[in-house]
Design a protein around this nucleic acid. Structure first.
Length: 490
DNA sequence: ATCGGCTCGCGCAA
DNA sequence: TGCGCGAAGCCGAT
């Protein structure tokens, strides 16, 4: 079954070539074998044309945030996919570029033998430009499939300034979108054979084995190795799926209350897996719906636009879905319509820029530059622990993340500099940096998708104020703090 | 412990 | 035009 029409974009309308050797799926964002509109669509095309499917999953070097951390995570995922595709009888080419530019030409070489090329839509980082460039160069029909979330990006025609207005838009069409989920196992009955790839292509661009991908290969790559792999967190669909199950079995029943407290460990931890598509939003939703015995008849229209009660699920599940769909996809929709907007200071709402400008000259109790923030060397142990968690784990606890960003706003020479510092730290150290959702998290701390709050305060103006002292009072965080403390902090 | 005030944009109802 | 509502705010009053 093909992906719904509203999720398929054809940038250059070229005819497909029915006598090609295979259908090429260029897997760039939805790096998984299940619950994927992109893969499902490519498989349906292959069936229609009676040609084998060839999956190209690659990772290149030379892009801007090129760290051993991200490479390890993505290569873990490639290793899992290599095994899964092999057991499904589908050819999967796992290419790891080992020198800048070495991968150039691979996509075109494979595409020239293909009936058509299918790839993923992703509204962030350099992917939209990469897809646009590929669409121009590839002399084949090229179909871009949006499997990012419940809301098809093309079904929206504008950005939303508040979560509330987006929530209303989601609820209005939710009943329609829950009826068009991707197939859970799109390749379960695959019988179209093994795509042959010419030796000269494989000689120049070798496909790595699962063992290679998990092994020492990464050590020799030209990467920022200072940002090393995160401990205790393996990338890939196996680890991502396991995390979904763990959260459903334990965290969800206490959501969101337990997730507020850093010591309690009640967060889903799914963000990095969602970012690289090792886990898909539809798959997570499907599991929640199944666990709660939900069907669309339980939707309560009278609760439309409300934070709770619309779905007819438990309050905990509704709260999590609000996070997974409303808040996550709010950022995706914004990035889709305004590429780069979320990470641009001048794109913040007018009221926020005005009030921050009015307080630009206020005295700051402390100011630090990016290097001091980056090395977690401020006067405040609580803040340093946040930054240390980012450095070590590639993610900051959800609540502490807000404090982390708010304090950089409070302790930088200007709000503009603070914003740039945060985007840079997030880009470099977070496993899911460069995700629209990560940028919306930073931008929220500067008023994006939020509202003004009084009373007006120094530096922050009417932007929602948060303090380390209040967090210490409200939250259970002593164990978290001890864990991420650095020598010298007490 | 709980509550109101602070403040702004949206979308619906009137 | 008015009104209710809204990611996690903080602070002071009761």
């Amino acid at each position: 079954m093909k992906a719904p029409d509203g999720r398929v974009r054809v940038p250059e309308d070229r005819p497909l070539r029915p006598d090609g050797e295979y259908v090429l799926y260029w897997m760039i964002a939805a790096r998984r074998t299940r619950n994927s509109f992109g893969l499902q669509h490519a498989a349906a095309r292959a069936r229609e044309l009676r040609r084998p499917l060839l999956v190209l999953e690659a990772i290149r070097v030379g892009h801007r945030w090129n760290t051993a951390r991200v490479h390890r995570f993505v290569m873990d995922g490639m290793s899992v996919n290599a095994r899964r595709f092999e057991s499904l009888g589908v050819r999967h080419l796992a290419y790891v570029e080992d020198a800048v530019g070495a991968g150039r030409g691979l996509l075109r070489a494979l595409a020239s033998r293909a009936c058509l090329v299918v790839t993923d839509e992703f509204p962030g980082y350099f992917l939209p430009r990469m897809v646009a460039a590929a669409a121009e160069r590839i002399p084949r029909r090229f179909e871009v499939v949006d499997g990012n979330g419940l809301v098809p990006l093309a079904a929206t025609d504008r950005v939303y300034t508040t979560a509330a207005s987006f929530r209303r838009a989601v609820h209005k069409r939710a009943a329609e979108w829950v009826e068009e989920f991707p197939v859970e196992e799109p390749l379960s009955d695959y019988d179209l054979g093994w795509a042959e790839v010419p030796h000269d292509i494989l000689g120049r661009w070798p496909s790595r084995t699962p063992q290679d991908l998990k092994g020492a290969l990464i050590a020799g790559l030209p990467l920022d190795h200072e940002v090393g792999p995160v401990r205790d967190r393996t990338g890939g669909s196996d680890a991502g799926d396991a995390r979904v199950e763990r959260f459903l079995g334990d965290g969800l029943a206490h959501y969101p209350e337990r997730s507020r407290h850093p010591d309690a460990g009640g967060t889903s931890g799914l963000s990095p897996y969602l970012h690289f598509g090792h886990v898909g939003a539809h798959g997570v939703l499907r599991r929640i719906f199944h666990e709660e015995g939900w069907d669309p008849s339980l939707i309560r229209e009278e609760r439309l636009a409300r934070r709770e009660g619309f779905w007819g699920l438990s309050p905990q599940a509704e709260s999590f879905i609000d996070e997974l769909v409303t808040w996550r996809e709010l950022g995706f929709v914004h990035a889709f319509h305004r590429p780069g907007g979320l990470e641009t200071y001048d794109d913040l709402p007018e009221w926020a820029r005005r009030t921050l400008a009015n307080h630009e000259e206020d005295d700051r109790p402390w100011t630090y530059d990016k290097a001091t923030f980056e090395s977690a060397a401020t006067h405040e142990a609580l803040w340093n622990a946040c930054q240390e968690q980012l450095r070590r784990d590639g993610a900051v606890h959800g609540y502490m993340r807000m404090l982390w960003a708010k304090m950089v706003l409070g302790w930088s020479d200007s709000p503009r500099e603070a914003f740039a510092t945060l985007v840079a730290l997030n880009d470099r150290w977070a496993v899911d940096g460069r995700d629209p959702n990560g940028y919306s998290g930073v931008a929220w701390c500067f008023g994006r998708f939020d509202r003004a709050w009084g009373p007006e305060r120094p530096v922050f103006g009417k932007v929602r104020y948060m303090t380390c002292d209040a967090s210490r009072r409200k939250l259970r965080l002593s164990r978290w703090l001890a864990r991420y403390s650095r020598a010298g902090d007490s």
